Amino acid sequence: MTFNFDCDLRPGSGLGIFELGSSLWNVLDLLRRLQHSFPQVDIKYDDTDASSTTPIILHIRPHLNLLFSGKQQRLHTIVLGKLRLGDPPVTLRYKDTVLSSPNDVLKRVFVSRTFGTDLPVPEDDLRADLRYPGVWFSFEEDGMGDGLKGIQSEDRMHEVKRVIVSQKELEGEHRDVLSEVVECPAMDGDISRCDRQGITLQFHPAGTKSVHIRLGETTAQDLTMDLGPPIRVHYKDDERMTIHSSNPDDNVEPSYFYNYFQHGLDFLLSPTHVVIKIVLHSNIPGSPLFQRYKRCNWEIEAKPEDDEDDTPPRKPFHERFETISHFLSPREPPPSMLLDRTDDEEAMTLPSATTRLHGYDGIILEVSESSQVVAVMLF
């Protein structure tokens, strides 16, 4: 059964079901629930040591490319192509106007009539794109403008091949295509940063009250009040981690996890329903837990030198393990322990399935073979 891909264009905001600023985790979760409509999705990312901070592209065949920013993993740019090709066919609308459909060809003259005069460009800029705040229209199927120099921009009947949606820029502002997404309504309620002070969670939008979660103090009821109910309650602890606990008996049943996949967080609660361990996930592409958790933008904070020290040094998730390890312990790194998260997943095969656990005072780093910290555990 073939459906018609019918989507509305919202310059500077989104396209169809996709909203600029949405997290990679949310978009992939949405696509998973709509597999009948979007059966072919490819994830493209840099598989080098820099994969924690390089952009990610979702190619939704045949029409869509979604570009996500490297650090925040937020939807930065939407590219709609093959307007007249591919299956299913595309119907593109703007407000109450049909721009393109199997029966309507979108041409330069109609774009100008609908959106008015495009943004001015320097005289030596030979690109033929029509650019407006939050959207531009391209007359080439591939590339981002490099192949447009041979097209005469005065041809009113040229057919639009691609539509690109991005956030609007302020007057005089120029944002790089690889920049982070500016705070927008799609981020509301998401964690903007996670500091280690127990932990302190900061939320979008800016100015929202922070939430403090403290080991040995915060209760299951507190978590539900501050973060809502967990997506899953899990009653199986990893016994391999008890070696790092000051009291091995605190991890026996019936301890349980509150899993907040939508925040990139796990909380282990004691039989008395108090938080005794916190796990923060980095959502590194290619790692065993990629896309199970949203990226938690954690930072490890050093202890303030005195009461007046309000800017203690921090190390963010995208620093290499060697840098964070030296920050936590200037001496030699502690002994490590091998962990293979695919042991219980017979159908999962990854080129780098194993990680190592490095224990410090009150903190454990889970590190990939490429020296990226894929998770932090506080206890």
Rank of each mutant, 00 (worst) to 15 (best):
Y293P: 06
Y293F: 15
K294Q: 15
K294W: 01
K294P: 10
K294V: 08
R295F: 10
R295M: 12
C296W: 08
C296H: 14
C296N: 15
C296R: 14
C296D: 12
C296F: 09
C296Q: 07
N297H: 13
N297Y: 10
N297T: 14
N297K: 15
W298N: 08
W298H: 08
W298F: 15
W298G: 09
E299C: 15
E299R: 15
I300P: 08
I300H: 06
I300N: 04
I300A: 05
I300C: 12
E301F: 07
E301V: 15
E301G: 10
A302M: 11
A302G: 15
K303W: 03
K303S: 13
K303R: 15
P304Y: 09
P304F: 07
P304E: 07
E305N: 12
E305M: 14
E305S: 14
D306C: 07
D306P: 07
D306L: 06
D306G: 10
D307R: 11
D307V: 03
D307E: 02
E308T: 07
D309A: 08
D309Q: 08
D309V: 05
D309Y: 05
D309M: 02
D310H: 13
D310F: 11
D310M: 11
D310Q: 08
T311K: 07
T311F: 03
T311C: 07
T311P: 00
T311H: 02
P313M: 02
P313V: 01
P313Q: 04
P313D: 09
P313L: 05
R314K: 11
R314N: 01
R314M: 08
R314C: 06
R314P: 00
R314I: 04
K315C: 11
P316W: 03
P316R: 03
P316C: 09
P316E: 07
P316L: 05
F317M: 04
F317T: 00
F317A: 06
F317R: 04
F317H: 11
F317P: 00
H318V: 02
H318I: 09
H318E: 08
E319Y: 08
E319T: 02
E319L: 13
E319Q: 09
R320L: 04
R320H: 07
R320S: 10
R320T: 05
R320Q: 06
F321Q: 03
F321E: 04
F321I: 01
F321A: 14
F321R: 04
E322L: 06
E322Q: 10
E322R: 09
E322D: 06
E322Y: 05
E322T: 07
T323E: 06
T323A: 12
T323M: 06
T323L: 10
I324Y: 01
I324R: 05
I324N: 03
S325Y: 00
S325Q: 04
S325A: 12
S325F: 01
S325I: 02
H326M: 02
H326G: 00
H326E: 00
H326V: 00
H326W: 01
H326Q: 07
H326P: 00
F327W: 03
F327L: 05
F327G: 03
F327C: 08
F327N: 04
F327K: 04
L328S: 02
L328D: 00
L328A: 02
L328M: 06
S329E: 02
S329D: 03
